[in-house]
Design a protein around this nucleic acid. Sequence first.
DNA 1: TCGCTTATTGGAAGCGCTTCCAACGTCACG
DNA 2: CGTGACGTTGGAAGCGCTTCCAATAAGCGA
Lengths: 346, 346
Amino acid sequence: MTSKRPTIDDVARLSGVARVTVSRVLNGGPNVRDEVRARVMQAVETLDYKVNPQARSLAGGASRLLAFVFASDPENDPNSYYESALELGALRACLALGYQVLIQNVPDQTPDCHKRVLELITSQRCEGLILSPPYSDDVALIEAVLAQGCKVVTVSPGGPSKGRFDGVGVDDEAGGYDVTRELLRLGHRRFGFLAGLEGHLSADRRLKGFRRALAEQGLDDKDCVVVRGDFTFRSGTHLAPRLLDHPLRPTALVCANDDMAAGVLSAAHARGLSIPQDLSITGFDDAPVAAIVWPPLTTVHQPVKVLGQRAVEMLVARLTGANLAPEPVFQQLEHAVVSRLTTTAI
Amino acid sequence: MTSKRPTIDDVARLSGVARVTVSRVLNGGPNVRDEVRARVMQAVETLDYKVNPQARSLAGGASRLLAFVFASDPENDPNSYYESALELGALRACLALGYQVLIQNVPDQTPDCHKRVLELITSQRCEGLILSPPYSDDVALIEAVLAQGCKVVTVSPGGPSKGRFDGVGVDDEAGGYDVTRELLRLGHRRFGFLAGLEGHLSADRRLKGFRRALAEQGLDDKDCVVVRGDFTFRSGTHLAPRLLDHPLRPTALVCANDDMAAGVLSAAHARGLSIPQDLSITGFDDAPVAAIVWPPLTTVHQPVKVLGQRAVEMLVARLTGANLAPEPVFQQLEHAVVSRLTTTAI
DNA sequence: TCGCTTATTGGAAGCGCTTCCAACGTCACG
DNA sequence: CGTGACGTTGGAAGCGCTTCCAATAAGCGA
């Protein structure tokens, strides 16, 4: 029916070299004359040869297995865009690079969460690990994993691990600052901030940026009320009263992510408030939901899928020793305030 | 550092049999005495042995590669929950089963879309193909793929391919019927239906169910206005005027999916309508967005992630010749009307 | 010119598994 | 008691690739 796919030996035969030379060319190895290299590439081209990743990893002794650890409990939490998008980006990059990822949800706060992560990577012989918040700030865990000989890339690290280990993310502090500046520009002076889970340092940097913007205008904690949620839509609806009924009566509410902002929005509707006339609301992430709720949410765009993809690419670059600085690199992607209809001048 | 993982030979040695016997046990092969089988399993247990999938597929000559084809253009369409969830479910099942999936977006309507799909599976040597709508109803394509020796599972087939090939899905006709019955029960008599793209037969079955429910009450096409969108939020906002300004002035609007329903909802808000007082709206899918918009959307729940997962499981069962009927099987999952706040009595 | 290092190539082994086929019993039947 | 069939086991080969190491050619200073 369909003829067999060409193997490395077919390429070798066609280009008149040994199999091992083809392998060297394919893997970008040194010590191959340009003329030979070109001849081999030519043969690869005409045969439409593709390496067999299975054979390669068997022979190479590399598992080509990565792990991606999330902290949320998939049973309780509805699947968040943030995590799905990260996962999807990673999965796609892996497909492209011939790697596999093991997705694992290990609720944090549990006493044996370190052990579970370590066990995962040793028992499955993972070569690399991607850590999402708040694990991306867990220096002890990262060092333990590194000690096992497993490379690590952190997603959105916000604390000491940022810069100390490889990572990808946006400038959360600047994001929080930028969106708050916008609200300030619109005349707001009494603020609420709906923060995320304790220990999610990158999300807390949004709060830091928020405070810096306020401070620039001579405002401080007396002029704002800060409440913590858990990033879910539900926590937004639950916590809304704490923000809305506060004696300060904030006119603008900055949320650490879109789902919570959507939750507050929903609660505001439920009590008959007009948004944005009665209250301006902003989110963070620019998840699809931000464009879909009514009114569409002003938010800070963050390229989450790309983050997941880049994390895998960095990890693989580390594993293959590709052109990468020896010191840790932090790849910072662009964020942008997206003004929609939940914000207005006062 | 970490000791090497046990191989099949370690298991063979420990249980005192030949490597090939261990292989037989592992693969559930016949002709192994129970006593030997137990001994091998015991050894597997104590060594915590896990087969090396790379080696297995190399030796077995199976690529363990699946393909999942979507019709949407990822550049134009915002990523829909339906497709992401399908993809995620499939990806997870693949991880669990040791398979890989190639995700491909091949816009339909293009003249060479059949050729592109065929080329994908032959060049990558895929063993199985999952087709989402509308490809799941493209009998010619399915037969061409099957002729290549590649197994196929269809997701939500709605036309002749349902029952003729393996497939997974819900009873869309019943879903459309159920949600319409609910609206009828609430007293509605003038309806709008926002249908999906032409050729998406399973989505059209929702329309069929809608019509059946109307007919039962002696209503027909004179009592409803039907408009076609493309399943996106934007098409919902764009098409809203066609529904809302229709001379019939429908009091209830049934949409073929949640994104379009959310779009109509958004447009309704934009023109100052009160939902559900001025208009009842229902969706289909029960995507996360349904719970998040205001008011939360009454919709028909469909387990999309599970659909993706089951599709892979069926495909793999077919490939491994697991206990599966020789004739095509259609795995029908449960749907359920979820009443939220966009519907009210009239 | 010679010995030495360095660049370039290939031979052989083997990663961990499955498949093919031969070699055993062991049993029923004639 | 012989014969074939069957259930059960193992030996050997090999999937497509990489790694290790030996072999050869080329370059270079003294």
